[in-house]
Nucleic acid binder design. Structure first.
Lengths: 360, 360
DNA sequence: GCCGGGGCGGCAACGGGTTGCCATGTATTG
DNA sequence: CAATACATGGCAACCCGTTGCCGCCCCGGC
């Protein structure tokens, strides 16, 4: 009878199993990684011994020779931004189905941090999804040269991409505002490093031409609540009746900022956001916004990445385009006819107070 | 002059560098991992050669011998829940400072998924932070036996823990409601698998005794907006004037649900949440809530974990307790004297309509 | 009875670093 | 000047699986 005791605290290896099962280590290895290559009875015996000993294959050691870690990285621009939650869910679901673990990396809206994190992680993962990357095109290509990469929310030649149909979303938003009588739309820009930011602005320009609506841009602002509030202040000096914000967080910030200054949304100004985050539905007034299929973005990108990892060529032709839809809530309304064309009444109202006072 | 060309597509290894720098591989290794162990000039030369060749040390290979991957896992209960965003930030910041990469795992509120993910990841990380784990105590201890573990938002003997001072938060909330004239508080419970859920309820019981406020519990409900809305319906059949919700998301859901049924918050019912998520400040009415130091939670837990990984014993005595504070906004008000004691007027109001209608 | 082929298992060489130990050469000390 | 200590670098074993290749055995076919 073989010895069952073993030095405690030591990890069980294939060698231990091999000894106990009276086969060579290679057979143990094959019993797990290529069961067809070994006699089924032997395999069964090995599996039982392994079970008894509590053997678990060491993924690092395996990765060393196979150079497959069964991990993928998902890089997101800002974990604070709720849009990514659903994207992450979609990605993780698909990854888990394929037996992959997802390493989530938060770039904190920083080109530098993102590069550093990608650099650090690259060699430990089998592929990378870059969601709303803030890196330069060339940096992305560099990464793509070393590992399978799928880019989300950005189009880039030679790298597989998944994007949403923002032009159509913007177009729908512009139509909607046009129907409400607005003949002028102000785009409140987000980060310049954000690819969709440019797309949305250009799409608005184009839609404006076709629909005969004047457009202009202010910003850039940080794509956050605070950024939106700052934008609201600037909107004060350059009034508007219809605003399209880069994203929902900014839109909510704008609404907050405006109402703090006594401007009524949607009475005086209509505001449209982008993304349809959960909060869009719970703020007052409910935010009219262009809804992106977040979950689908994450899952589609990841699915594509996995096929690339499995050896597929990676479809670099046209980006994969996901549909969007306009969700109309209460932040948009028929244009208020009272304010003057260039200087709505509300511009002269009370100045900005500090943040909402808190009771003791 | 040595040959600079090398087979393309092959990774550069220490052997390549050694050849070029005319030293042995071990010296190259030491030049990176133990610079003090090698002559500074030699080290410098090696580093230059490595740079020129584009050498990057392979973390997997390193991990194989050192069994240190420089990765930690951060397991969170639900990435959709915004509280975790700040926790993740705090954790990631500290981890990055210590040259660690954070692997984020979303357990999707599922015991099973959480276990599976931890199981899969455990052997590839140097330590684990379990934030609001839904696993059983015994499962956690099992994990803690194999890797350094710090538990967040849960107290557990023999495992280092970081918790917030929920009893004090609940007490403050109860005092606040008491001062507003409420003599009865309903606790809307979250997941039973959630440790703070139990703590909050027990703390409320206790505070109720001392402050002579009657308390009761309804639930459990899912700790989400939807869960809160369901709770609102139940509140309809068992009316209350003051509600303490397990978390902010539920509180917001409750407010939404109630106001949809024509109940005024805070006029008819005061609602207090927990966590102070960003949305608490942007909803109408602004949510009175117990603010947790989210960022600090993440950073404290991670800091502790890193010291354990570095070999410190892991402080398993008392859990580390982080302070909370009550943020009073507009969802709490003086108790409305009109409704009858057991059956406020609003109970007989119009029935629940469907979700907010959307314009085409 | 002989030969070819397939099933199965073992040997040994990796993969890319790390590290204990030893062999130099130089600096320090008595 | 001898003896000792230290700084520095190399050797080789090791971490834990994976896999190409080879050998053995058994089976079937002619």
């Amino acid at each position: 009878m073989p010895d069952h005791t073993r030095p405690p605290g030591k990890r069980v290896t294939i060698y231990d199993v091999a000894l106990e099962a009276d086969v060579s280590p290679s057979t143990v290895s094959r019993a797990f990684s290529r069961p067809s290559r070994v006699n089924s009875e032997t395999a069964e015996r090995i599996r039982r011994v392994a079970e008894r000993l509590g053997y678990r294959t060491n993924p690092l050691a395996r990765a060393l020779t196979t150079s497959r870690t069964q991990m993928i990285a998902l890089v997101i621009a800002d974990i604070t931004n709720p849009v990514y939650a659903e994207i992450v869910r979609g990605a993780q679901e698909v990854a888990a189905d394929g037996e992959y673990t997802t390493v989530l990396i938060d770039a904190q809206e920083s080109d530098r941090l993102e590069r550093a994190a990608v650099e650090r992680t690259m060699s430990t993962v089998d592929g990378i999804v870059l969601a709303s990357s803030r890196m330069s095109d060339s940096a992305i290509r560099m990464v793509a040269k070393q590992r399978p990469v799928v880019v989300l929310n950005r189009a880039l030649a030679d790298v597989p991409c998944v994007v949403t149909d923002d032009p159509r979303g913007v177009r729908r938003a512009a139509e909607h505002l046009g129907e409400l009588g607005h003949d002028h739309i102000t785009y409140v820009a987000g980060p310049q490093a954000s690819w969709p930011n440019g797309v949305r602005w250009r799409s608005l320009l184009e839609a404006g031409m076709e629909l005969e609506i004047k457009v202009r841009q202010i910003g850039p602002f940080s794509p956050t609540l605070a950024g939106g509030e700052r934008a609201a202040q600037e909107l004060c000096t350059r009034p508007a009746t219809a605003v399209l914000a880069f994203n929902d967080q900014m839109a909510i910030g704008i609404i907050r900022g405006l109402s703090r200054m006594g401007v009524n949304v949607p009475g005086d100004v209509s505001v449209v956001g982008f993304d349809n985050i959960l909060a869009a539905d719970i703020v007052t007034p409910g935010l009219t916004t262009v809804a992106a299929p977040l979950y689908a973005e994450g899952s589609a990108a990841t699915r594509h990445l996995l096929t690339m990892i499995e050896g597929a060529p990676g479809h670099t032709g046209r980006p994969m385009v996901l549909p969007v839809r306009l969700v109309v809530r209460d932040s948009t309304a028929v244009r208020n006819p009272s304010p003057g064309r260039t200087r709505p009444a509300w511009v002269r109202q009370r100045p900005v107070p500090g943040p909402a006072a808190q009771l003791p």
